[in-house]
Amino acid sequence: MVRFLLAAILLCPAARAAPGAERRVVIYDGAATAVGAAGDESKDLWLTLADLTAATRFTLKPEGVCRDEQCFPIPAGRAKEFVAQRGEVTWFNLSEFGRLLQQPVAHDAKHGVWCFGPRPSVQNAHVASRVAPDFTLPDLKGKDHKLSDFRGKKVLLLTWASW
């Protein structure tokens, strides 16, 4: 029995995340991460705190939900909408956090995939500042290049496609 459980824990990412969790995929900042999520009782995506950080780099702290130097406080009186304690496990509602930050969210129920887009203030920063939004993309050999690596030169940023 112990051996069977151990095998299940090793093989199934959901079991590794938390008991009662199902396998989901979160696409955040364009990167896909397999996570365990709470069962079907909610339409929202509830993650363990470890999976929250693995998928989004956000961490739950006393001052709010934080990443790098930035913290988003949980609105007063609404803690239960964001954080739930079930037994040993603390769950975080990434869907509610997405609504708080006004992120666009696409969802495929059949495959359990959730895709979170950027906050409007991030997406639209260049409209006010006129500074080109930065990005990092690979060349054909897989080497990453940042647009801002070309600062100091005039750049023609050109898009094309094979289709």
């Binding site: 054909l140 647009l147 023609l156 094309w160 289709w163």
Partner: peptide
């Protein structure tokens, strides 16, 4: 004249499609 072209393929097929 201190000019660069950064050409970006909008291709879900990646390097296989654009290469």
């Amino acid at each position: 004249n201190n000019f660069e072209i950064v050409s970006v393929a909008q291709d879900t097929g990646g390097a296989k499609a654009a290469g």
